[in-house]
Design a binder for these strands. Structure first.
Lengths: 192, 192
DNA sequence: GGGTCAACCAAGCAAGCGCTAGTGTTAATC
DNA sequence: GATTAACACTAGCGCTTGCTTGGTTGACCC
C-alpha cells in the first residue's frame, strides 16, 4: 500500500475519483467503477488507497489545500486596503471553486460521509481557510465597507459564494472575476 | 400498495424517513433501517411506498410543497411595498427551512438521487417557488431597494439563505426572523 | 544476475442490499 | 356471519458491495 506517498499516480487517480464522485455521489460510486475509470482492476485500487474512505479524504484534502494556497497567494498579491483584500478573497474563492470544481463539490456534498478520524484532520484545514476569510471580513467591517454582524455576514457571504457551484456555468458569459465583483458590489454600494 | 393515498400513516412514515435520510444520507439508509425506525418489518414498508425511491420523492415533495404554501401565505399576510415583501419572503424561507429542516436538507443534498421521472415532477414545484422569489426580487430592484444583476442577485440571496442549514442552530440565540432581517439589512442599508 | 519494489491482476468471500411472494390479523362494511 | 381492505409478518432470492488473497510483471540497482 502507498498510503503516505503523494505519488503523481495517486494524485491522478484522486482527480479521476473526484470526477466520478461528483457524477454519481460517493456512496453510489463503487470501487469497480473507480477502477474502470482509472484503467485498472478493482483489486489494484487498494494498492494506492487503504480503503474507499481514503479516496474520499484524498479528494477533499486536495481541494481544500489548493483553496488555502490560492487564498494566501491572492492576499500576498494584492494591496492592503480592506476593499482590495475583500475583492481578492472573493475572486480567489470563485477561481478555485471552479477550476478544482470536482474536488470542491465533493467537499461540499460528501463531507458528512467522512469517518470521524479523517474529518477531524480535514477540519483543521478548513478552519484555517475560514479564519482567513474572517480576518478579511473583520477588516471590511472596521473600514465601514460592509455592515452587519460579523458572524452572520461571513456566513451569508460564504453561502452566496459556495452556492455558485449549483448554477454557475464556467463556459457561460461571466468569468469568476465578474461574479466576485458583482457580489462585492451588491454588499458595498450605497443604495444610491 | 398505497401509493396514491396521502394517509396520515404515510405522512408520519415520511417524516421519520426524512430524519434518517439526513442522519445517514439516502444511499446509506437501508430499507431495514427505515423499517426499524418506523417500528415495522422491512417487507411491510413496501405496502406504503412502491420502492425506496418513492420514499425520497415523498420527503422532498412534502418539504417543497410546505415551502410554497408558506411563501404564498406570507405574501398574502404582508403589505405591498417591495421592502415588506422582501422581508416576508426571507422570513418565510428561513422559517420552513428550519421547521421542516429534515425535509429541506434532504431536498438540498439528495436531489440528485431522484430518478428522472420523480425529478421532473418535483422540478415544477421548485420552479413555482423560485418564480415567486424572482418576482419579489424584481420588485425590490425596481424600487431601488437592492441593486445588481437580477439573475445574480437572486442566486446570491438563495445561496446565503440555503447555506444557513449548515450552521444555524434553532436552539441558539437568534430567531429565523432576526436572521432574515439581518440579511435584508446587509443588502439594503446604504454604507452609512 | 539475484534482489527489491511499485504496480497490477484474477478470483472470490462474506456481508449486506432492495425487493418479492405468500400468509396471517384486525377492524370496518355489507 | 361473510367479505373486504389495510396493514403487518416471515422467509428468502438474486445480486452487488467493499475488500482480501496470492501471485505476476517489469523497471531499476548494486
Amino acid at each position: 500500500m502507498n498510503v503516505m506517498n503523494e505519488s503523481p499516480r495517486r494524485k491522478e487517480l484522486t482527480r479521476q475519483a473526484a470526477r466520478l464522485f461528483v457524477q454519481e455521489g460517493f456512496d453510489r460510486t463503487t470501487v469497480r467503477m473507480l477502477a474502470d475509470e482509472m484503467g485498472i482492476k478493482s483489486g489494484s485500487l487498494f494498492h494506492h488507497f487503504r480503503d474507499k474512505q481514503a479516496i474520499l479524504a484524498a479528494v477533499i484534502e486536495e481541494g481544500t489545500q489548493n483553496a488555502l494556497n490560492m487564498a494566501h497567494q491572492a492576499l500576498n498579491d494584492t494591496g492592503e486596503t480592506a476593499s482590495a483584500r475583500l475583492h481578492a478573497m472573493a475572486r480567489a474563492h470563485l477561481q478555485t471553486l471552479h477550476t478544482d470544481r470536482n474536488a470542491h463539490v465533493v467537499a461540499l456534498y460528501e463531507w458528512r460521509r467522512l469517518e470521524p478520524a479523517a474529518r477531524s484532520h480535514l477540519s483543521h484545514l478548513r478552519d484555517a481557510y475560514e479564519a482567513l476569510w474572517e480576518s478579511v471580513i473583520d477588516d471590511a467591517l472596521t473600514a465601514g465597507l460592509i455592515h452587519g454582524d460579523r458572524f452572520l455576514v461571513s456566513r451569508f457571504i460564504m453561502g452566496a459564494l459556495n452556492w455558485t457551484v449549483r448554477w454557475y456555468d464556467p463556459e457561460g458569459e461571466r468569468t469568476p472575476d465578474e461574479l466576485a465583483n458583482e457580489l462585492v458590489a451588491m454588499l458595498t454600494q450605497p443604495s444610491n
